[in-house]
């Protein structure tokens, strides 16, 4: 890095004078050249404008209308009615509560267990480390549908290996109906979401651990700090940017990640017990075709998660002095 900037300033001074002379001679080509960066950016700009920002604005607009997705039917302006309706729906309350459960439920898998494992297994031999990395990362690259299919088989009430094992080890009287029992379903989905994430998080924290300067540990050991004191006063504070990053990711995306498992495994049931806010959007949009409701809920989600994200970004900036 240092060497480029030094080299660049060295070579820049000379051509700059030439460039100025050129600029006066060829006004038009220079003006065209000014457009160049925009031309290179054109595909990206057009695509995100058309496929992300346009629909975002349309969702805001549709949240004030009543419409059933049929091209032949007219959109009817209803003002704030959609918002009033959805916030008073009991379904909405359940979905929000479930969203909170997914978000909190994923924290052990995204943060607590990975941090503990990363700290415990720091300093392991390089060879075995690479092997473990390759194994524990595997769930991350699996497709959510494939993951759902496999877990549905493993967690099948009567024929699944999990219930068979639990029954033979603990002598359960009845098999656990992981996906059709309203008490269990949301935890099963949370577990699968977490299962996919846990190896990835562990690797993120291990990578952050290797970035910590060993001298701090040596100094602490000379001061006769206990293992826990070292973790509490050195490791965790130095990991805090990574902890914050993973907390942000899991807070913002836990429900989005669980969406595919909900859709494939439970369709929001039993009795709405696994429906989270994203699944509710989906249901309103493509099952009951109440586009207005779906859009109004989408607007609320977008604003809600946007505020959370901004909060996290502020916190990150505040905490960034820990990066050394």
């Amino acid at each position: 890095m240092n060497y480029d900037s030094a080299a660049a300033t060295g070579t820049l001074s000379q051509p700059k004078a030439k460039l100025r002379a050129k600029k006066e001679r060829q006004a038009l080509p220079v003006r065209l050249a000014k457009l160049k960066p925009y031309l290179y950016l054109l595909p990206v700009m057009l695509s995100i404008a058309y496929w992300i920002y346009r629909p975002l604005i349309q969702t805001f607009r549709l949240s004030f209308y009543e419409w059933n997705l049929l091209p032949t039917s007219a959109e009817k302006y209803v003002g704030m009615k959609n918002f009033r309706n959805i916030v008073t729906l009991p379904e909405m309350g359940t979905a929000l509560l479930n969203t909170l459960i997914y978000t909190v439920g994923v924290i052990p898998f995204a943060l607590i267990i990975p941090i503990a494992i990363a700290i415990m297994t720091d300093n392991i031999g390089k060879r075995s480390k690479n092997m473990y990395r390759a194994l524990i990362f595997l769930p991350m690259i699996m497709a959510p549908v494939a993951v759902s299919s496999v877990w549905r088989w493993i967690m099948h009430p009567t024929n699944g290996i999990l219930n068979q094992t639990l029954q033979s080890w603990f002598g359960l009287a009845e098999p656990i109906r992981f996906f059709s029992d309203a008490k269990w379903a949301i935890w099963s989905i949370t577990f699968i979401t977490g299962w996919k994430l846990i190896g990835f998080s562990t690797l993120i924290f291990s990578a952050a651990m290797t970035g910590i300067n060993r001298e701090y540990y040596e100094a602490a050991k000379i001061d006769r700090a206990s293992r826990w004191q070292i973790v509490r006063h050195i490791t965790l504070p130095l990991l805090s940017p990574t902890i914050l990053f993973m907390t942000m990711l899991s807070t913002l995306f836990a429900s989005e990640w669980s969406f595919s498992y909900v859709n494939v495994l439970t369709q929001g049931g039993p009795l709405g017990s696994t429906t989270n806010i994203y699944y509710l959007l989906w249901k309103y949009g493509f099952q009951t075709f109440s586009v207005g409701w779906s859009s109004a809920a989408a607007v609320l989600i977008f604003i809600g998660f946007g505020i959370i994200a901004l909060g996290f970004m502020k916190l990150t900036r505040k905490l960034s002095f820990f990066d050394d």
Binding site: Q58, L252, Y278, L281, G285
Partner: peptide
């Protein structure tokens, strides 16, 4: 754009 979830923009698209 990473703040815009798929489900928020799926209907218009």
């Amino acid at each position: 754009t990473w703040l815009v979830p798929f489900q928020v923009i799926m209907i218009p698209n």
